[in-house]
Amino acid sequence: MTDLDVRLPVTDARPSAAKAFRAILWRDIFVTGKEFWVFLAQVALQPLFMLFVFAKVLNAGGYVSDDYAHLLLPGIVALTAFLTALQTVSFPLIMEFSFTREIEDRLLAPLPTYLVALEKLLLAVIRALASAVVMFPIGALVLGSAPWHADGVPLLIASLVLGSWVGAGIGLVLGTMVPPSKISVIFAVILTPLMFTGATQYPWQSLDSMRWFQVVTALNPLTYLSEAVRAAVVPEVPHIPAWVCLLVLVGSGVAFTGIGIKGFMRRAVS
């Protein structure tokens, strides 16, 4: 052994929190990768069927017009991203905090506890964006064509990122509040209304003649994601101004993240 061969302590002198954060994120991406096809089926199947039935089958029967397909696809992409983010956080979290206790090893990593929650949100956004990227071409394949508007790409990306973040935030709130015995209740009383009041299958301004429903949809953050994605992809369809959408998304993202992290801390440290 030479004088230079000094053994440094393993843990000191390194930014442990950043390293731990990256390792935890890597764990989740690694696990997602292992089950990539399951993940794809999970996120893409339901929206695909919706797209197929509403835009293709009903069109063949003459019930909806050709234009409707181009209006529906952006909405379906928004829905996919939103739900993927929400489910990426909520369901695993409910299980990890109760039956499996899997999250404990990560809660004991050398990083502040709230960062473990933020990692979940980041993972959810990554997965949601991946699912949105997958949905566009598959949707185009189903429909035979897809709307495209190059100028709208920055808005498209911004709204998908923000919208997934909001979905993840709602997932965090649900994941830390709902006991495992109520998991099926989430589906019935929260997810379903969320899916159908989110202006994904219809533009918000088309509801002018149904005032009460328009008000209800205005309360759903998904509405603003759907409107923003349509503003980016099919700007000719009347929509809520993009800046309003982005502002509401940022606002609800902050709110749900705040409530979610509070719930997370309560579950992580008793």
């Binding site: 393993v10 843990t11 390194r14 390293k19 390792a23 935890i24 764990r27 696990v31 090893d105």
Partner: peptide, 15 residues
């Protein structure tokens, strides 16, 4: 994760 990955990831969390 597998048992081996359980150990490896734990160590990764700890840098």
């Amino acid at each position: 994760l597998t048992p081996r990955q359980n150990l490896a990831f734990h160590a990764a969390y700890h840098g």
